[in-house]
Design a protein around this nucleic acid. Structure first.
Lengths: 347, 347
DNA sequence: CTGTTAGCGCGTTCAT
DNA sequence: ATGAACGCGCTAACAG
């Protein structure tokens, strides 16, 4: 079943069919409709390969992402995929889980010649990596981090940190800790640095000195959060409130607190970032963002770029403080102190 | 930069370059190595479009999946993507979130001519849908549900139900409820039916009659679980233990219990399915499965099929009971009874 | 508005 | 072991 079959069935030339199907001008509406109908009846579809080969687009957008199965990344991909699907664009996945895969991706560029655009999720590229990406000669957009000079959409992580800390300050907390994240290989996500900056500047403006013991860096995730809180509880003097890098980190922190026999928020206030689906169930106060929405906008950005429109280049989305029951004013005289030794896994 | 450039740089014909790069026989190892080196130096990559057009594969596998941003699906995709990437195969996403998108997918078959194989995640296809899929003339594999006559990998949901209920029975429970799931449009996931079958047959074999009031069907997810538990608590006579369709459903159920002032497991034992990343933190007893592993195997199945190997067709993976602190023997005389009215959202 | 023609870049015969 | 030539199915330029 080729375009020629449709052409002869319609009694026209292939070029007419091509024009009709691609939506290009130069065909009468009558002919176009007839050809569409016949195409339908015959169940014919244009071969994307042949189409691309002779000058068209690939109709594909590639996603470079650290993981697929974590909430943030999955949500971004889901949002973008929905939007792109509406435009008939397929999404191809290029996971770069660790530094080896990452180096390999930018070295070999497996997406070369396979996509019309690349979307990079939430990790900062080195100059070399940008150079490689640019060498592909396709559009590139960053989602999750607003990036200067690049089409990008994300939240402003300094503000995220401020919102969280301002809330704790407003409640009366002065001894505030932070559990931030580094990736297993020691590099940074960029959001970690920015959120910590927000944390520090909010405290500074409030005239509160940062106790460096209160800032711990762990591996991202529930387990990391659990370990981070264990470290804080081991301090001779503990904070009365903790800002966790993300909700999942906060969940881990909650686990450690619970297993230590401590109550949130009475013994310790806790605030996260994301508004993860579980946050409501856990009564976790958080700075909400919508990765799904970010993905959708990234998709729209891509579509705009591909259509040679000139869409706005840097889009920053607002985040909002969502107050639940994990934060409360500090209780004078009450201070977190493990009532039971933390379980082994938390140490 | 085309194959011709590599050919002239190497002083050979394009056909030789083609053979060398595609790994086909008919080239001396010396020549092949030299061509490879030059290809590398020039940064040349074969055009997948042109390659496919003249008889090759697309090098792509499509995923038909209800969602991308839920843990189970995301994990399957992540597992498969990793395996397929090792074989140089790209993954393309075809989300079918609702019945409209689903009907449209099988009607228009947007994946036609774009992939070498299709992987369907965890939903049962109708005869018509299979017919459409088969009309694409590519391999199709099902993951999540072991499917007769089709290459598939999954767990046996009847056994899942049995494992859960047997555990509750062994603890001494006799009044056991189940929160199962239907999709928002009333159709079934297949796993729901099978797990309920397991639930019923386990009870039957133990000589315990099923109290039909104890079986409630809700929409999948945390919210659904919350509503399901509210329904059970509203009963004049409540179960002492509940089997939730999945961990996320169980999390919702836990929320309702907590907000009703009830304790798990003392007032109610609760068991889920999956071993979701949050299950450990929530101390949830569960029947563990590994969607990631299922995805990996689905990927391997695909690779085998594409390489004309004949891999095993139906692969069922074991599930294992993971006992945590959400299940305990029933307390005689103690029975779940809301101590506070459930919060509005839970009603 | 429609038909004809010439590539798009590569795999694959068939020769050599 | 290597080269030449054809065709994969389509789009774009040109001709009518």
């Amino acid at each position: 079943m080729h375009m020629a079959d449709v052409a002869s069935a319609a009694g026209v030339a292939v070029s007419t069919v091509s024009r009709a199907l691609s939506g290009n001008p130069g065909v009468s509406e009558r002919t176009r409709d007839r050809i569409r109908r016949i195409t339908e009846e015959l169940g014919y579809v244009v071969s994307p390969e042949a189409s691309k080969l002779s000058g068209g687009r690939t109709g594909r957008v590639g996603f470079v992402t650290p993981t697929i199965d974590e909430w943030f990344y999955a949500s971004v991909i889901a949002g973008a995929t929905r939007v792109l699907a509406d435009h008939g664009i397929d999404v191809v996945l290029y996971p770069v889980a660790d530094s080896v895969a990452r180096a390999r991706f930018f070295e070999e560029l497996p997406a070369r010649r396979k996509v019309d655009a690349i979307i990079v999720i939430a990790f900062p590229l080195t100059d070399y990596e940008w150079e490689r990406l640019d060498s592909m000669n396709v559009h590139a957009v960053v989602v999750g981090i607003v990036t200067p000079d690049r089409p990008s959409v994300g939240v402003v992580d300094q503000i995220v940190g401020r919102q969280a800390v301002d809330h704790l300050l407003a409640l009366g907390h002065r001894e505030i800790g932070m559990i931030t994240c580094v990736d297993p290989e020691g590099s940074h996500y960029s959001s970690d640095i920015s959120r910590e900056q927000g944390f520090r500047s909010a405290l500074k403006e409030a005239g509160v000195a940062v106790n460096e013991d209160f800032v711990v860096a762990v591996r991202w995730g529930i387990e990391g959060g659990s370990i981070g809180m264990s470290a804080l509880l081991a301090l001779p003097h503990t904070p009365t409130a903790v800002f966790a890098f993300s909700d999942e980190v906060a969940f881990g922190a909650m686990r450690t607190l619970r297993r230590a026999g401590l109550e949130v928020p009475n013994d310790m206030s806790l605030i996260g970032v994301d508004d993860h689906p579980m946050a409501e169930s856990m009564d976790l106060t958080t700075v909400a963002q919508s990765p799904r929405r970010q993905g959708e906008i990234a998709g729209e950005l891509c579509v705009g770029l591909l259509e040679d429109a000139d869409p706005p280049l840097q889009i920053s989305l607002p985040t909002s403080l969502t107050i639940r029951r994990s934060t409360t004013p500090p209780r004078p005289g009450r201070r977190a102190r493990a009532k039971q030794p933390p379980a082994g896994v938390d140490g």
